[in-house]
Design a protein around this nucleic acid. Structure first.
Lengths: 266, 266
DNA sequence: CGAAGCATTGAGGCGCATCAATCCCCGTGG
DNA sequence: CCACGGGGATTGATGCGCCTCAATGCTTCG
């Protein structure tokens, strides 16, 4: 039991890496200054000069079509990848082929940091919609971070915050019921959309039910049932992948299990 | 359901931080050159000069008695902590007081990296036996890492490898049964003891059944039952916290679920 | 030596996985 | 235009693994 599908295999076969040539976008244009999500990205807070130098690093900005892979487990670490547009999922699998979705990535997020430890990617990244990423050559990033200590600190914080995020996820897996996880997931998405200037109440899920299930440590059917329940409670409206949060406080209450008769924690 | 005990509270109360004054050990003696676990620690691979400079950072080496706290969630990040002797657990808790054991730490491990993201510790660390740690002042470590790029790279790799470790743990939580997790846990411990020059077959658990349960996302009783089962299979001998692995290949088979009639994955 | 904490074992129930059938949506081609 | 097929989503029935509650044994330490 508990053997989740290998979430990568099906897509990997659709995209033997290298088959889809990266599409170079605006190679001569400064990447960061006019980027909509620069305030969330790695060079945030860097001085003008540092920011310019960082922009010079980004020699390639590439487009990835929906469903295709950007990098794969065991690829040598060459770049970190900053999402500029669209969204991705990353999948981690062991030797036995059991795998899971480790994260969903939105504009401003930087993917691939887990590769630094071994100089090889341990996850595979797939576009959930037509997307655009900036390629950050890691070697040169290291050099630049040496020149600009603030950048080094940002990188350290980025790495550390991934550890904390994983801690929180572990906590969720251990302590929350399926419904609480689902509520937590939707609230997390909502928050991230707000950070990016979108509505907190209304958004479109870019990932399948199966991806959500994998991310939450559940099965697809359980996710569906949770969604059905949220609908019946009139807390969230779903139509396909379009989400409408009707009762945000109610959803937050669900996340903390206040709906059940658990020990009264204020 | 699923509300694990707050693993920190009981011990926190026994040790309001500051009550136990750190015991300064050998302040004038170079810390790293003669350390038994220097080969596993942060400055590994650093040049002679860099190693000397790193040693100078370590102005304090302190002893912590069994059960007492070393640092606590929300403490400002001042030091990273390198375990020199003994062992620790770190606990992470959310606002509701639900918590879990995030990791167990052995000599050569460096604790506190998750604090870099917010400049405050997010976990609390407790000694599982009388222990000794080196205090690495983080600000000064940053400066030294700037002087010695190799040290910076080691730090980056350390952070990144914590992310990968958490990925693996998540995978374990999602894909493995209680018994497989228990087998995986024991094998992990065994491996780490070997790295430190101890026996692969025979060791003492420093943590309680409850700690193990929390770490594995299980309940104490389930851990006990798994132990009982391993004992009946003559794969592992337990007497209290002393462990004797009688059948290492058998244990590895259990970890991958080959005992059950799962789909024949070679 | 008694108390407190830790560990073990048993009985019973619940939450989620599993298996299976059906539905819906959408792109494709006759 | 509709028939067709395929992948994703939904819903139901059933069973199992682990949690929960509870009683008892064991170890440790003042």
């Amino acid at each position: 039991m508990h053997s989740l599908l290998n979430v990568a295999t099906d897509l990997e076969e659709r995209n033997p890496i290298g088959v889809v040539p990266p599409i170079n976008v605006n190679p001569y244009r400064a990447a960061c200054v006019d980027c909509r999500v620069s305030s969330l990205c790695l060079p945030t807070g860097l001085c003008k000069h540092g920011n310019d130098r960082f922009s010079e690093l980004i020699r390639q900005r590439i487009r990835i079509k929906k469903g295709y892979g950007l990098y794969h487990a065991n690829d040598p670490l060459e770049y970190l990848y900053a999402v500029r547009l669209g969204s991705f999922k990353t999948c981690f699998a062991n030797a036995e082929g059991q795998g899971l979705v480790t994260n969903f990535w939105m504009p401003g997020d930087t993917m691939g940091c887990d590769a630094i430890s071994t100089n090889r990617h341990v996850c595979s990244a797939f576009a959930l919609e037509d997307s655009e990423v900036c390629l950050i050559p890691y070697q040169r990033l290291e050099s630049l971070a040496h020149e600009f200590p603030f950048l080094q600190q940002s990188l350290n914080r980025l790495l550390s915050s991934e550890i904390v995020r994983e801690h929180k996820r572990l906590l969720m897996m251990c302590n929350l019921t399926a419904e609480e996880r689902m509520a937590s997931f939707l609230l997390g998405l909502s928050k991230r959309y707000v950070e990016r200037g979108f509505s907190a109440h209304s958004f479109v899920l870019r990932m399948s039910r199966d991806d959500i299930a994998s991310y939450l440590g559940l099965r697809l059917e359980t996710v569906c049932r949770c969604i059905a329940h949220l609908r019946h409670l009139d807390i969230v409206q779903f139509s396909g992948r379009t989400v409408e949060i009707l009762n945000l406080p109610g959803l937050k209450a669900l996340e903390h299990g206040y709906s059940k008769g658990s020990a009264a924690n204020q």
